[in-house]
């Protein structure tokens, strides 16, 4: 039981790691408070489901289309809301995530509250194949292990890519915008275009995370993409530190070990009380961290000027 439990923690940490890379790019490196990340994740996951179930597309093609669709949604949100400054933009993005959730909950194409099922056959066959390989090292009893490996391989590739991108003149413009958008525009940079690019990449990362969510739960329903999940991402960001992609990986692992690990506590509390206690523990850890190390574990104090 225990190994499967921790494999699942690893799956969640990887998914939310990918999810939070986008928030790091937006909030940490561009100064954009994107609170709609869960909405992009939902678009990614649901598009995969709909393209496979209703359109009969292969899973991998559906995945690519889903990412493209999430980017398009990011552009749409960006074009309409990016001219708003900081907090106003944040509120607009929360609104967007809510629109996505209510649409999915009520529309026919998304299966409404009943959700979507039966889109992951292609993945199941890959999973079977991977398990047969893992049989040679006697690890085939852990059925979620292939997913864990796929997620973390993807996460690490994306993390390195984002890290490399961060060292380019392109990313320097983003950091300029984070510090002072007007001053950066005065130096000849089209700041709107850069903010749009930042948001588009974050939406793509959210869609990739959403794809893995769909493979993990094999059944899509609207409450999986509650907009509050964006704040799991921000909790991870604050834990790991603003301005560090490696911090995202570390923050995600710590966050999920804390949140899931506390399930294993032996207490005399009722199930409901205990599940509330888990969030209390995570909250207290964040408060403690903000006292002891306000820039986060790997955050850079000098770059902490960005909100939040």
């Amino acid at each position: 039981m225990s190994v499967d439990f921790w494999i699942n923690v690893g799956v969640l940490a990887g998914i939310y790691g990918i999810f939070t890379l986008g928030l790091q790019l937006n909030a940490g490196f561009t100064g954009l408070l994107n609170f709609g990340q869960a909405g992009f994740m939902a678009i990614g996951a649901y598009s995969v489901g709909i393209f496979v179930v209703s359109w009969g597309l292969p899973l991998w093609l559906a995945f690519l289309l889903a990412v493209a669709l999430a980017v398009a949604a990011g552009m749409l949100v960006g074009i309409s809301a990016l001219r708003l400054r900081s907090h106003h933009f944040a509120i607009a993005t929360i609104g967007f995530a809510e629109i996505v959730r209510y649409t999915l909950q009520n529309a026919e194409f998304s299966g409404g509250n009943q959700g979507l099922i039966g889109f992951d056959d292609d993945w199941r066959s890959v999973n079977e194949w991977a398990l047969s390989k893992l049989a040679s090292v006697e690890l085939d009893a852990y059925t979620q292990l292939p997913l864990l490996l796929a997620i973390w391989a993807t996460f690490l590739v994306l993390l390195v890519t984002m890290e490399l991108l961060q060292r380019t003149p392109w990313a320097r413009v983003l950091r300029g915008i984070r510090e002072d958008e007007d001053a950066t525009a005065a130096l000849g940079k089209n700041t709107f275009s850069y903010k749009l690019q930042s948001l588009g990449i974050a939406a793509a990362l959210a869609a990739i995370a959403g794809f893995f969510v769909s493979l993990n739960i094999t059944y899509l329903y609207p409450t999986v993409f509650d907009p509050t999940f964006t704040f799991f991402g921000y909790a991870i960001l604050v834990l790991g530190g603003l301005g560090s992609y490696t911090g995202v990986a570390l923050g995600s692992i710590i966050f999920w070990v804390l949140l899931e690990g506390t399930r294993l506590m032996e207490t005399s509390l009722s199930a409901g009380q205990q599940s509330s206690l888990r969030f209390v523990i995570v909250g207290l850890s964040l408060i403690l961290l903000s006292r002891l190390r306000p820039q986060g574990i790997l955050g850079n104090r000098n770059e902490l000027r960005a909100e939040p």
Partner: peptide, 12 residues
């Protein structure tokens, strides 16, 4: 641009 280096201010 306070949160980036003096050199990065220039290179930007």
């Amino acid at each position: 641009l306070a949160g980036i280096s003096v050199l990065d201010n220039m290179l930007l």
